[in-house]
Amino acid sequence: MSRRPRKTAVPDPAAFPTRSYDLVKEFTIALVVVVLLTVGLAAVFSSPDVKPVTLASWSRADGADFTATAVSELGGTSGTAGYGPPYNHTPGAAQKLGPVGLQSAAGVRIPVDTTNDFVLRPLRDAPEPPAVTAALATWAAAPAARQQAWTRAYSDALAKAGRGAPAKGDYGPVPVLASRLLGLARSGALDGELQAEGRFYQTDYTRPLLFLSDGSYLESLARAEHLGGDQWGMMNETGNFPGQAWLWLYTFWYQIDPFKSSGNADALIWGLMALLSLCLMLAPFIPGVRSVPRWTRVHRLIWRTYYRDQAMERDRRVSGR
């Protein structure tokens, strides 16, 4: 017989034999079970709460890293300074998804000028010792090329010196400015200055977080906790707590080529995950994907009682005919 089975609608559940089923009782039991599990797990394991890093704690723990970062913010060579949108206009910095540049298209909507926002304004807002006033004046009077030559030379000297004192050189006012900023940070004043920006109430931590992220101190702490991007960090948590395990696929792509060596990795992986999410959402409409349940036959296990009863019914009919 070559007659194709009619593509009929799935039968109405009302056409099947029924059994009593108490949904409200089931829900109540489920709620009690979840409450008990939650109460027990929270009592036994609690929750993680690792102290935040402040500009004060960073500058005290790793003054060299703080100073190197501050000089890069002043000279406009830090990660944030060259980030591109949404923080600033940096040619070629924005990531692209193939030919599509969504990062550029969104524009600079959270402007950050690291030189002024992270270094010069906080220095001016704090009480200025005469040497700092003079250094700020020298900086302001110098042409941009000169300013950059100073910060570049000082950055190089700091890198060469490691944790020791940098060699003598022509750094202009940069060492005075950097040293004063370090002092302000160590006193805790810089945390307040970067956050408040002349206001009283504040809920936006964009600037201090960008400053922190530009240094290597925060990252070294994160890597020690297996939170780095190339350590499957997205699904990990501090200590031995479970993390966002549901992000396994998103973080997986960062571990393999071509993504891990791509400058556009973030955009590519975002695009890929958006596509895969769409596939999950639209699975009922995707040929092949929607047939996987039929092929895998897990459903034979789920509805084994039904299929067994059906087979018995069929046998009875055949023998009765």
Binding site: F45, S46, V50, H226, W232, N236, E237, G239, N240, F241
Partner: peptide, 18 residues
């Protein structure tokens, strides 16, 4: 559960025990 996290490594896979 604070303190050094325990992890298993299996090729490219790095997974916390938790």
């Amino acid at each position: 559960l604070n303190g050094a996290g325990r992890y298993v490594h299996w090729g490219v896979v790095q997974l916390s025990v938790a």
